[in-house]
Design a protein around this nucleic acid. Structure first.
Lengths: 339, 339
DNA sequence: TTGTATGCGTTATCAA
DNA sequence: TTGATAACGCATACAA
């Protein structure tokens, strides 16, 4: 069933049906009614493909997610859900593309076949071939995270340097003299993953500022790795009394390893970091942490993209979020003695 | 840039370019080369929208996920990832639709605007209006879970009755005399959520068969609810020594509440259930559970849908999975005394 | 071996 | 107030 069928049954031309639907041209009340009756009866909806071809836009955005191999973290998941929800609210559909490498057919379809009006890219690297490709294709896009040339693209990101700096100072103020940063996986850091590098910056600066000792370790994005990281840290650094992390997925392992070592949080050992709120609250005891507002970020990313699609020429906007650290129960005064 | 531009630059007609691309008509080697050179130079890819309009299919499938309000469980997440991955492997794109209620614009777009060739629907209810709508629209679809009239649709599902039955018998064999089933949320159960109802069936049958006592409770899909469920169960049933569950998201809470109550797993208390494998392995101690093969299910769902799209007339196929229970460390002999 | 012409379903311009 | 028609970019039947 198509617009011609509706027109035939209502005894009008196709253009009149189209105008009755869009309201872009006045249609006599009686005619409009007749058309609407037929439409209601048949349950007609204009074909999205034909409309997209004619209008030159698809009313669809692409969301490029990390490939399924590495399972998504809660934060990433929340972000996907937020994007999909925010897009639905403005009647945009979301096309998902699991994409990591360069020779990715799904991603390539997205950017070069005109399937979407714009793209949101997650997990941006400092030098990201996907960004290069999108720029070359002239497709509007928004990054979650940004490349080395900050000003050249539109992005929304979390200020990891500042947040990790905050958390280190918080720990130092509580009397901790040696603090570890549990970062993301070795591969990710090596490939130039911005958040990890900026977390290191913030860590190093705060360590120096407060004159405490610091040790940074990489850690896979899973509980097991978190557990191993803590075990190794405790072994190598008997005087360690606190960790801060940007590795959300490692938290359950961190929790376990500390329990196994007989260390109570926060009386024997403090834990803090950057994590999605629900995740922080699920920690035991509830995690003192900067709550990454994934839902808000998703919403803002969609909003930025919609603007960018509407006015591709304007200078790219950036949003750098630095949510406050919520004091919960996982940090406390440094223990007098340990080890 | 379009096919006409390529044709012009290569000095051939548009149809020749089209045939050179599709290979559906022989093209002289020299001509083909000339065309390919132009295509490579300009990076041309046929417009997906125009192709879809012409061919009458979009090479896109829809994935209807639960609305973002209730955050997705790991199992659901794994499933989404699996579907997206499996679809990408056969060059299908995936359009995401967060959809719960009936008045859902996103879902309505999916079914009535010809945006997709077929749909995969998650979290099917025994009486599901979305299924009715899809059937009415004549759009091929595959359900994860099935409606009351099993034979009327194409689905893939987990045999919760059998799996929960297994786990109860396993517990009974270990000497447990009173077992609780921790189900999904009250609302979900009330709305006729198949897995919860079938889990109940299996539970009731196995309880009766082995002559043990059973108690069933509903529980929200989050850690806090899991914790509360255990606390209440322990209070109301001091003789309870084991639980089985289909509520994956409640597991961390179950774990905590037991630890808080000073109950060691499995020496004091046994826990078992149905969960995604990685989730089960993350439990502490590793969970004796039926591992829901979410990745495999996603792959199979895509495969079923592709078949269904190709041959809409064939009788609907069903796949009922009953993965074996993996013995890990969370179940053991019933304690001699408790309470 | 290649070119011409038509139509997919829509929107929008031009004409009445 | 409405209708006829062109065009979006492509694939393909038909012609040469």
């Amino acid at each position: 069933m198509n617009i011609g069928e509706i027109a035939r049954r209502a005894g009008v031309s196709r253009s009149t049906v189209s105008y009755a639907l869009s309201g872009k041209r006045p249609v006599a009340a009686a005619t409009r009614r007749r058309i609407q009756d037929v439409i209601d009866e048949l349950g007609y909806r204009p074909n999205a493909t034909a409309r997209a071809l004619k209008e030159g836009r698809t009313r669809t955005i692409g969301l490029v997610i990390p490939p399924a191999g590495n399972r998504l973290s809660h934060m990433q998941l929340d972000f996907v859900a937020a994007v999909v929800d925010a897009a639905a609210r403005v009647d945009l559909d979301v096309l998902l593309s699991p994409s990591g490498g360069d020779h990715d057919r799904s991603f390539e379809r997205l950017v070069s076949e005109g399937r979407v009006d714009g793209v949101i890219v997650m997990e941006i690297r400092l030098h990201d071939t996907r960004v290069d490709r999108l720029r070359q294709a002239g497709l509007p896009f928004v990054g979650i995270g940004h490349t080395a040339d900050e000003r050249a693209m539109c992005w929304i990101d979390v200020d990891y340097a500042r947040l990790i700096g905050h958390s280190v100072r918080h720990l130092a103020d509580l009397g901790h003299r040696k603090v570890a940063l549990i970062s993301r996986s070795k591969e990710l850091v090596a490939s130039g993953y911005g958040p990890a590098l900026r977390a290191r910056e913030g860590f190093t600066a705060a360590i120096a500022e407060r004159g405490v000792r610091g040790v940074e370790v990489t850690c896979g994005d899973d509980a097991r790795s978190g557990q191993e990281s803590i075990e190794e840290l405790l072994r190598a650094h008997p005087d360690l009394t606190a960790v801060t992390t940007i590795n959300e997925a490692a938290l359950p392992g961190i929790q376990r390893a500390l329990a196994d070592a007989g260390l109570a949080v926060p009386s024997d050992f403090s834990v803090t970091g950057v994590a999605a709120r629900l995740w922080a609250e699920d920690f035991r005891p509830p995690l003192t942490a900067a709550d990454v507002p994934a839902l808000e970020m998703g919403e803002q990313a969609v909003s930025l993209l919609v603007q960018r699609i509407a006015e591709p020429g304007t200078p790219p906007r950036h949003i750098l979020l630095a949510p406050p650290i919520s004091l919960r129960s996982s940090t406390g005064a440094a223990p007098a003695v340990r080890g």
